[in-house]
């Protein structure tokens, strides 16, 4: 079973790295969808004794929402505003990848040292969780398009989900489902926001939103 968990976690790392190097938004959305499915499978493999019903619910909920609903919403937003790719990222793709590997090293070193009160199913879970959070934050910081930033937000939630899986005994299912609901509302609102930003400014580069000032004449 450990081998299965490890394989899925390494798949998560690879998806994160591809996400850092993806210039086409379609591909990036697909990678995030794949992450949703991988995360849906993880609770089933990682569940401790007896909690498989909750794990099943959590897994299916996560896969449905992150693997199907969010990508559909984002694809719809992209179709409506006719945006295909990130033209000028603040950090280039090759350098994003290299910085990502650097971040991975840091997460591996520190994540392995974090003391944990009970045994974790695999020594990789904490480092991968940290690295996923790192990827999400990096995407939010280093990309201009609002869509990519929404993606970064989802990836950030993925990491919270992954780290939360370690606490399934301590954290009730309701909290996890609540987080999923929150994120759903957030993505929904962002989808509408992206549309409005685009209609107002003919682009969705968020770095130009700072020019919106009352006193600008």
């Amino acid at each position: 079973m450990t081998s299965g968990i490890d394989s899925l976690l390494i798949l998560l790392i690879l998806l994160n790295l591809i996400l850092l190097g993806a210039s086409r938004l379609h591909n990036a959305v697909r990678m995030v969808a794949a992450q949703g499915f991988v995360l849906g499978a993880l609770p089933l493999l990682m569940q401790s004794s007896g909690a498989w019903k909750a794990a099943l619910l959590l897994g299916i909920g996560s896969a449905l929402l992150k693997g199907i609903v969010f990508p559909a919403l984002l694809f719809r937003a992209m179709r409506e505003i006719q945006v295909r790719r990130e033209i000028e990222p603040l950090v280039g793709y090759a350098s994003s990848l290299l910085i990502g590997v650097g971040g991975l090293v840091v997460c591996m070193v520190w994540g392995a040292r974090l003391p944990f009160p009970w045994p974790v199913p695999s020594s990789l879970v904490v480092p991968v969780g940290l690295f996923t959070a790192w990827t999400g934050l990096f995407l939010i910081m280093a990309r201009r398009k609002a869509i990519t930033q929404v993606l970064g937000f989802i990836v950030l939630e993925n990491s919270i989900f992954l780290l939360g899986l370690l606490l399934t005994d301590a954290m009730p299912l309701l909290v996890e489902l609540g987080v999923l609901l929150d994120i759903f509302v957030a993505v929904f609102v962002m989808g509408i926001m992206v549309f409005h930003i685009n209609r107002e400014f003919d682009h969705i580069n968020v770095d130009q939103l700072s020019a919106l000032r009352e006193d600008a004449s």
């Binding site: 390494i10 690879l14 790295l17 190097g21 990848l97 991975l104 591996m108």
Partner: peptide, 17 residues
Amino acid sequence: LVGASVASALALLLTFR
């Protein structure tokens, strides 16, 4: 090629745990 290097680096990292 950077992708290939990253795959190698990831493999190296995995041997360290």
